Simulated assay, not measured.
Amino acid sequence: MLASFLIMLREGIEAALITGIIASYLKQTGRTQWMPAVWLGILLAVALSLFAGAALQILSAEFPQKQQELFEAIVGLVAVCVLVSMVFWMRKAARSMKSEFQHSIEAVFASADAANATPLSATWALIGMVFFAVAREGLESVFFLLAIFQQSTGPAAPLGALAGLLCAVVIGYLIYVGGVRLNLRRFFRWTGAFILIVAAGILASSVRSLHEAGLWNGLQTQAYDTSGILPASGPLGTLLAGLFNYQDTPTIGEVLVYVVFLVVSLYLFLRPHGTAGHGGASAAARGSRS
């Protein structure tokens, strides 16, 4: 539950920052009459994400056992790629997010003015900009939530995702109106590290699914057995399995993939990258509250 909660909280806040920057700039430039276009873009992006998630879930239920394992492995691998690209993209994008979106908004209206286009053309252009920005976050969420749901049973993971999204909506609104001053650089740094740990577990699970699908048979010797000390079926083991894909009898291949991925990704993510990134992240935070 905690993994899905934190991931959706982060994704939701990212989407809230994007829409907050756009809404704030429209307000600052006296274009509040265009806000319905922003809301329409958000609603279309949410609808697309829900449709994609439902379609993938229904599709996976129709597969035979081995194809089901292959599907789970593919979803897991896609989720890992999405998670890694998300945390590293946000690490860099925070530097120039505000200026890029403001430039895009001005480009929309400048193009419409230059072509003597109708307001409807500018409206659809603004809807498209918001739609693609928010849909990116929504489709990312679909893949890694599917990967987490495949590893969890019961309603805990979906409820955690819903709670994280609702909290993100509230925090995003409070940031927009200026009621909350969130240290976004620290928030994205530590949630990014946590997400990489989750991604390592999903990757190890994908290796296991590939083996069960009959496509990967290497390094299948059992690495260790902690079932007598910390069984995966026990309360703590279940919690660790939901958070980090804990297994009490993993194979050498699963452990190797988990450790190598985690060491490399955390090193690249946590290493210092200069004061420019810090200043840019702060600028993005200030822009989201303006």
Rank of each mutant, 00 (worst) to 15 (best):
L2Y: 07
F5A: 07
I7G: 13
L9V: 03
G12V: 01
I18A: 15
G20S: 10
G20N: 12
S24W: 05
Q28W: 02
T29K: 13
R31Q: 13
W34H: 08
W39T: 14
I42P: 01
L43S: 05
L44G: 04
V46F: 13
L48A: 13
L50E: 00
L50Q: 04
F51R: 01
F51W: 11
G53Y: 14
A54D: 07
A55W: 11
A55I: 00
A55C: 05
L59P: 00
Q67L: 13
E72W: 06
I74E: 08
V75R: 08
G76H: 04
V80F: 14
V87L: 06
M90H: 05
A93N: 12
H103C: 00
E106R: 12
E106T: 03
V108W: 04
V108Q: 04
V108E: 05
A110K: 11
A110V: 02
D113V: 05
D113R: 15
A117T: 05
A117W: 03
T123Q: 12
A125L: 08
I127W: 01
I127R: 12
M129Y: 07
F131P: 02
R136K: 15
R136H: 03
R136T: 10
E137V: 03
S141D: 04
F143P: 00
Q150L: 11
Q151T: 11
S152T: 14
L159N: 11
L159D: 03
A161M: 04
L166Y: 13
V169K: 01
G172E: 11
L174S: 07
I175Q: 15
Y176E: 12
Y176F: 10
V180I: 15
R181F: 08
F188H: 12
F188T: 02
R189S: 07
G192F: 06
F194W: 09
F194M: 05
A200Q: 04
G201F: 05
I202N: 04
L203N: 01
A204Y: 01
R208Q: 12
S209F: 09
E212S: 15
W216I: 01
L219I: 05
Y224M: 08
D225T: 02
S233W: 12
L236C: 06
G237H: 09
L243E: 03
Y246T: 06
Q247N: 08
D248L: 06
V255P: 08
V255G: 06
Y258I: 00
L262T: 14
L262P: 09
V264P: 03
L266T: 06
P272V: 03
T275R: 11
T275D: 13
T275Q: 13
A276R: 13
A281T: 06
A283Q: 12
A283D: 14
G287C: 04
S288F: 14
S290C: 07
